[in-house]
Design a protein around this nucleic acid. Structure first.
Lengths: 202, 202
DNA sequence: CGATTCTTTGAAAACAGTCAATCTGTGTGG
DNA sequence: CCACACAGATTGACTGTTTTCAAAGAATCG
């Protein structure tokens, strides 16, 4: 499981075997079953979590009891939101497994130590953070200026393959529309992709 | 002008006079007049910019010619978006001064050198980045789950004092609604705050 | 199976958007 | 100092999309 994390980092940064041993000694494996929480709103998060397999949603429940999904996390990416990662503050969002999920955790102090001691690691995390931030910025642009249909396509591109792994109402929540609207939208899209011979009935 | 930047950092990190001299030698002052660009969509950004006075908007123009504002930057904060700051890629957004604005720029190589040589600076920037990211995540939540009225209040809180410095149609763009809708919303809010005696006419 | 959980569909209502006209304030030049 | 132009704000009538509510149909899971 740690191998998946190692493979992910190795694609971006060359790290000596000695340093890998150090990183490995800090890594904590964690299994979640479907519907288990990685983090609950209001609790304090003291770790970073890398997803090896499975997927999770990060969301908030509003005053009316409606759930709003801000982010999905798939395999080979970091789970959860940064909001919950600012030390000391209670999380505003919850993160929950949507499938059985395998993670590698690094507790904050350990992670800081890795950043400080492994050459290039801090800079890599910094870059990862910037890329991640840039993608959130794009998402704001999507949410503000795209139609429901364009937002749906953006979702399909952002999370390839995810649309068949999770219920549709969660996609709707992520897009900021109702499940009914998404259902109608998809029906419409399917219609426009219909072969001609099927549309020219007597 | 550099003093404002120094004051901003000093509140978060103690830096020796020697290191301040080094930072100062890299800092580049820049003045923008109202309507001047800090960065145009499509060009490549090679610096980080700190706002000492004035304010800017970061935005994108869509295929229909409509402008979508993703972010404002006020004094004592970093200007522009991270998207444009990932080295090498042409910017997706433009950043433009809304008032006469004074900035301090750091070119990428210089900034990297400061991060590498000034103790704690890299970690501080990392933390700033995380805080910034957390605020964008909150914004996604706002945009997705708040009503127009709630979004307007969130804007007022996020950018204290800004609402009277910029035209209303820009606030509307930031909120993702039309200027007409914002106008009606404000009228409604003003009405509900009316003293009772004015609402009980004969 | 039987029971949830999820998706689809319909009709009505609420909401925000569009278009077009009017109003307001500000700054410029005569 | 006034008149005008211009940018921005407001208002009204209309249109269109999305939501809401309710009910019926799939699909999935134990």
């Amino acid at each position: 499981m740690f191998e998946i994390f190692k493979d992910y980092i190795s694609g971006k940064l060359i790290i000596s075997e000695e340093d890998w041993a150090k990183i490995g000694s800090f890594a904590v494996s964690k299994q979640l079953h479907k519907k288990d929480y990685l983090l609950k709103e209001g609790s304090i998060r003291r770790f970073s979590a890398f997803v090896c397999s499975g997927c999770l949603k990060t969301y908030r429940v509003d005053d009316n009891g409606y759930e709003h999904i801000t982010k999905f996390s798939m395999e080979r990416s970091w789970a959860g939101d940064m909001n919950s990662n600012i030390s000391g503050k209670p999380a505003l969002f919850s993160t929950k497994a949507l499938e059985d999920t395998e993670l590698v955790l690094f507790y904050d102090e350990d992670f800081d130590q890795i950043c400080a001691e492994v050459p290039g690691f801090q800079a890599l995390m910094n870059k990862d953070l910037k890329v991640c931030m840039s993608s959130i910025e794009s998402r704001i642009n999507v949410v503000l200026s795209y139609s429901a249909e364009e937002k749906y396509h953006a979702f399909l591109e952002e999370y390839p393959g995810l649309s068949t792994r999770i219920p549709q109402y969660m996609i709707a929540s992520y897009l900021g529309i109702t499940p009914e609207s998404l259902s109608r939208l998809r029906k419409q899209l399917a219609g426009s992709r219909m072969p001609l011979k099927l549309m020219t009935g007597s």
